[in-house]
Design a protein around this nucleic acid. Sequence first.
DNA 1: TCGTGGGTATACTGATCGGTGAACTAGACC
DNA 2: GGTCTAGTTCACCGATCAGTATACCCACGA
Lengths: 188, 188
Amino acid sequence: MSETKPMSAAGQRILVAAGDLFYGRGITAVGVDLIAEHSGVTKRTLYNQFGSKDQLVVAYIEEREQRWRLLVRETIAAASPMDAVLAPLEALRTWNQSNPRGCAFINALAELPDPAHPAHLIATQQKQWLLTLFTDLATAAGCSAPDTLATQLLVLHEGALVTQQLPLDTLSASIELAHELVRASILH
Amino acid sequence: MSETKPMSAAGQRILVAAGDLFYGRGITAVGVDLIAEHSGVTKRTLYNQFGSKDQLVVAYIEEREQRWRLLVRETIAAASPMDAVLAPLEALRTWNQSNPRGCAFINALAELPDPAHPAHLIATQQKQWLLTLFTDLATAAGCSAPDTLATQLLVLHEGALVTQQLPLDTLSASIELAHELVRASILH
DNA sequence: TCGTGGGTATACTGATCGGTGAACTAGACC
DNA sequence: GGTCTAGTTCACCGATCAGTATACCCACGA
């Protein structure tokens, strides 16, 4: 459903520049002229490729979500079934290094209050996906009460993600606590 | 240091309207004309009271922070020393009802990337304050390793705050888990 | 009674916003 | 050679942005 068009080289450069700027400075604060300038492309080309700023925002969120899911799946694939439960947390270790300004989806929700906005939908669905993933992983690892555990892990995940700007290693703290929760859950 | 001026009735109306609009629609997306209109005040009055949009943003963040601290202090005062550790979490029960769009400080940070911006500073200091508060409360309750516990509680707090938009009672899950952590910490 | 300070009303500035029109250019494929 | 496509150049649109200017109004206190 996503293979409708391969996207031109110019289109990709636009998307990269838009990603950096939207995430780094905020969606509303960044104008299309600035994106065009940073991607070495004409504003006309930007509109030929994406149609409107709103659609470019949607493309930005979609791309971010796909990259994130890919990283999580790779981390899961590289872990043992029991460690896989913590994979989304471990993935943050890598992710946060190139994304030091908090969660792009939460930040986007802050700027896109309209629940009907496509980007708003994608951002909320991303969290739903993560919750379901935690539940599946917990079930596969043989945890008791996987739903409860998944909710706890989601909270730890979002908490660690959102507090990364503080001079505190909240990610390690979250992973350690998550590890204990998983272990306790497996031992009934 | 905050009692320099009592603020006129018009000033208070402006601050209330600005709070609703900034929090509800985003800071950058809301213009001064809209705020003036919603507070039934002339734009001239707005500028006479606050000087610039930036200073109004700072006033908005400051007011929010003071209200939040007040609520937390009241919740602490109404709790037993052992339950006081969970007071900031419990305070969210009340707070979230009138603030359903996530954490105002995180949302503000998303839109104000400049670390030198006064509102940026206040927003980050707010979390530092909360961390210190958790540490003090944990120490007062006789918890072992209060620093570690405080970090965990902060993560749970932020996680619950940020996931409130999901159709999940993450706040109750966070409080229950926090309760267990505190109990385990007191029993060494 | 006379200022004076807080407020209103309205018009305005220059800059920037998202978005468009039209003509032109370079390369790829037939 | 001819056509088609993606991209460029650049001028332009109306709306909105933050912020200012000028003049007026009115209640309150000395």
